[in-house]
Design a protein around this nucleic acid. Structure first.
Lengths: 228, 228
DNA sequence: ACAAAAGTGTTGAGAGTACACCCATGC
DNA sequence: GCATGGGTGTACTCTCAACACTTTTGT
C-alpha cells in the first residue's frame, strides 16, 4: 500500500458467493438459485451478492446464507477469492467465495419449498452454472474432501444425533472411497469426539445406537488430523 | 449473485498485499516498505497496491512482487482476503493477501539496497505495522508453518544448491522445533525429491554434499505430506 | 592432534490395514 | 425362521521416534 488515492483508481465491484453444501438422502447437494437477469438469465448460480460498505466479508456471506436457507448457526469458512478480469462479461467483479455446511436436520427451511428459483442439486452433477461458478464449486468440493481427510468436519452435515453407519456413509460418499467398518468405528471412537446417547434409530432391522458430536471438541477437531 | 446493477452499489477499493518471505542468515525475514503518506505515515507496511481493472489478482500480486524485489519466478500463493470495514480508517478497502517465498540466492536484487524505504525485517519481530498488517503477517506465518509440515516447500527459500543441514535448519527455524538429524535425512532422501550433485560446500570443516531440488517433483511435492 | 561439522543404522512403539462372524430386530 | 443391517477383535505391516559413534576436513 504505497500511494493512496481512492479516487485515482477505478474500483471493481465486490461480491460474495456461498457454496452451501447439505446431505440429502446420503448424497451431497449444493444450493443453487436461478438467475432472473442477464447475463446468464434463467441459468443456475451460486447464491451471492454485493458486499455492502458497512459489513465485513463474513457478514455478507452470512447474510446470503440466511437469506437463502434461514439458518445461521452453521459452519462457514472463506474459500478463495476469484478475480479474473473476464469472469463477468459486463464489468470487473471480484468475488470472495465462502463455503458452508448445513446439517441435514436444519435444511427443510426455506430451501425445500419448491419455489423453483432456489433448489438443491447433486453437487457432483449440477446443471450448467453461470459465470465461473462451476470452477468455484469444483474448488469447494476439493476443499471439502481435503478437510474431511484430516478433520471430523462431516459432523456439520449430519443431524444432531446420528448413527455410526450414517457418519461412515457420509465420509464414503464425499471422499468417494469405501472404508472398513471396524476400522472406521475404532478410529472415530478413539478420537474421543463423540457422545454415546441413550437413543436408538428404529425401523428396518436392529436399532442403531445414536451418537452426538461433543460440542467442546469442535474447535479442537477442526484443527486435528483425523483420517490419514 | 441475484440482482445486478453495478451502479446501484457503492464499490469498495480492492488492493493486494504480499507477504514476501526470505531466509537471511538462517532466519526468516519479511520484506516491508515504509509508508510515505497518511495514515500511518512513516510506519512499515506490507508491499501492496490497488488492483487494476484489467489485471487478475495474481497478476497484481506478481506486479507488486516484481516492483519490490525484481524477481518473478518465485512461489506465490493466495493467502486470505481481509475485508473488515474498519481496517482502513478512511474508506472501505478490501485486500487480497498473497504470500511469496523468495530463494536466498535471488534476494540481493532490489531489496538489499538500503534505500531506507524497503527493507527486510525478522519475520518474528517486525516493527509496528500499519493497518491490520500484523494480523496478515501472523496469518502468513501460520500458513507457512502449516505447509512446511506436510510439503517440501522449504526448498523455495533455499538457494538452488544446498546442504542437508541447511535444509534441516530452515525447517527447524520455521517450525520452531528441533528435528533429529538422522530421521530428517532419511525422510527427505526417501521422499525422492532431491538430486545429489557432485558439488560440496567447503570452508569450515568437513565439506558437505550439495543437493538440488528435483524440478519434476515440484508439483507433486506441493500436494504431498512430507512431515507428520 | 584436536576441534567442528558431516555422515550413517537399529530398535521399539504405535497406528494403519486387512479380514469374518455373531446379534438384535421386523416381517 | 430368515433377511437385514448393527456391532465386535486380532494379527501383520509400516512408519515414527529415540538414540551415539565414525569420518573428513581446517587449523
Amino acid at each position: 500500500m504505497a500511494a493512496f488515492d481512492p479516487h485515482k483508481y477505478e474500483r471493481p465491484s465486490v461480491t460474495v458467493d456461498v457454496v452451501i453444501f447439505g446431505l440429502i438422502e446420503g448424497t451431497l447437494h449444493v444450493l443453487l438459485i436461478q438467475r432472473g437477469l442477464e447475463p446468464f438469465a434463467s441459468m443456475w448460480a451460486l447464491p451471492g451478492g454485493f458486499v455492502r460498505l458497512d459489513e465485513s466479508l463474513e457478514q455478507a456471506a452470512l447474510r446470503e446464507l440466511v437469506e437463502e436457507t434461514g439458518v445461521k448457526d452453521v459452519y462457514l469458512e472463506q474459500l478463495y477469492t476469484f478475480g479474473d478480469p473476464q469472469r463477468d462479461p459486463r464489468t470487473r467483479v471480484i468475488t470472495v467465495a465462502y463455503f458452508a455446511l448445513v446439517a441435514a436436520d436444519r435444511l427443510r427451511l426455506r430451501a425445500d419449498t419448491d419455489a423453483a428459483e432456489v433448489r438443491w442439486f447433486p453437487a457432483y452433477e449440477p446443471p450448467p452454472l453461470a459465470f465461473d461458478h462451476q470452477k468455484i464449486l469444483d474448488y469447494a468440493i476439493t476443499r471439502l474432501r481435503y478437510k474431511l481427510e484430516y478433520t471430523a468436519l462431516a459432523f456439520e452435515l449430519l443431524p444432531q444425533e446420528f448413527t455410526l453407519t450414517e457418519l461412515q456413509q457420509a465420509y464414503e460418499h464425499i471422499l468417494n472411497e469405501e472404508l472398513d467398518k471396524r476400522n472406521f468405528r475404532r478410529k472415530v471412537l478413539q478420537a474421543d469426539i463423540l457422545d454415546k446417547t441413550e437413543n436408538y434409530r428404529e425401523g428396518g432391522h436392529r436399532p442403531a445406537r445414536l451418537y452426538s458430536f461433543r460440542q467442546d471438541a469442535v474447535a479442537e477437531v477442526k484443527a486435528r488430523r483425523l483420517f490419514p
